[in-house]
């Protein structure tokens, strides 16, 4: 017997996919256009706009900054997030429940508000250097992801395993590294990647915290677009997309994407 799929369902599915993927197709097309302005469908085909990315020093420089921030900010958030997630899972009964929600706040507060308040407090208030302020800001916005994703794998972790290690002569702190960490590895990798991508693509926090001489790739993209309207913008976008897809593909291969949807 064949399962019948309702035609309306098919229609909705197709429309949804068009809605999701259509703009991406437009961007990819525009990035290949042999014109000095953005247009779709592309007129002529060239990879010139891709090589052009690397000829504009502002792009290469901010790309470096963005990757550094994504790695640094994510690492910083892991250093805070893993112990926090551990404590929240280990002492679930003893700790008040609102503590867990605090770590979701950076998602709930409008990012633009968060960016503005970080600028006011860190940059203007304490005179923190731009790069340090960016690092703290990025660590903050990705913290919810690291705490939640690492927390999800800790929630299914049987803490008797840690006690077993301790009973066999392994001190508590050492048991965390030899027994707990290896068993939540998947969650840490998944959290790291989610956070990395979020940081790499962030605009709203960075736009407040970037300043003279220091910028990130998405911000540079905005600045570039205000002055020039050439397909480099599209090629940079495709590049960012490509990095994201590549990272996702690695996750899919090693862990399965279900980790992110759990």
């Amino acid at each position: 017997m064949k399962t019948r799929i309702h035609p309306v369902l098919i229609f909705i599915t197709v429309v949804t996919f068009l809605f999701l993927l259509g703009p991406l197709v437009v961007i990819i097309g525009a990035s290949l256009s042999d014109t000095s302005y953005l247009t779709f469908p592309p007129q002529g085909l060239t990879l010139h706009w891709y090589s052009n990315i690397f000829e504009i020093s502002a792009f290469t420089r901010t790309m470096g900054t963005s990757f550094m921030l994504a790695i640094g900010g994510t690492t910083l958030s892991m250093l805070i997030g893993i112990p926090a997630a551990y404590a929240l899972a280990r002492y679930r009964v003893e700790l008040p429940s609102f503590l867990g929600n605090i770590f979701v706040l950076p998602i709930l507060i409008p990012e633009i508000v968060l960016g503005f308040s970080l600028m006011k407090s860190l940059a203007s208030g304490f005179g923190v250097p731009i790069i340090a302020a960016l690092l703290v800001g990025h660590a903050l916005i990705v913290l919810p992801y690291t705490v939640r994703v690492v927390g999800a794998s800790l929630n299914s972790f049987d803490f008797s395993i840690e006690e077993a290690a301790v009973s066999l002569g392994c001190p508590r702190y050492k048991a965390f590294f030899t027994v707990v960490l290896p068993n939540i590895r998947a969650g840490i990798i998944a959290g790291f990647i989610l956070a990395f991508i979020t940081s790499l693509n962030d605009v709203s926090i960075s736009i407040f915290l970037t300043g003279p001489g220091v910028s990130t790739l998405p911000i540079q993209l905005l600045a570039h677009m205000e002055q020039f309207f050439d397909p480099t913008i599209a090629s940079v976008s495709v590049l960012l997309m490509g990095v994201t897809v590549a990272v996702m593909a690695v996750v899919e291969r090693t862990l399965g994407l279900t980790f992110l949807t759990k």
Binding site: D158, A164, N183
Partner: peptide, 27 residues
């Protein structure tokens, strides 16, 4: 706890999932 030298058997077994039987026993 780690200095007490007591062998413990748990209800949930609490084996180390990332280690083989040999490494579990040798821990």
């Amino acid at each position: 706890a780690h200095a007490r030298d007591i062998g413990l058997v748990f209800q949930t077994y609490a084996l180390f999932p990332h280690l083989t039987v040999r490494d579990n026993v040798g821990f």
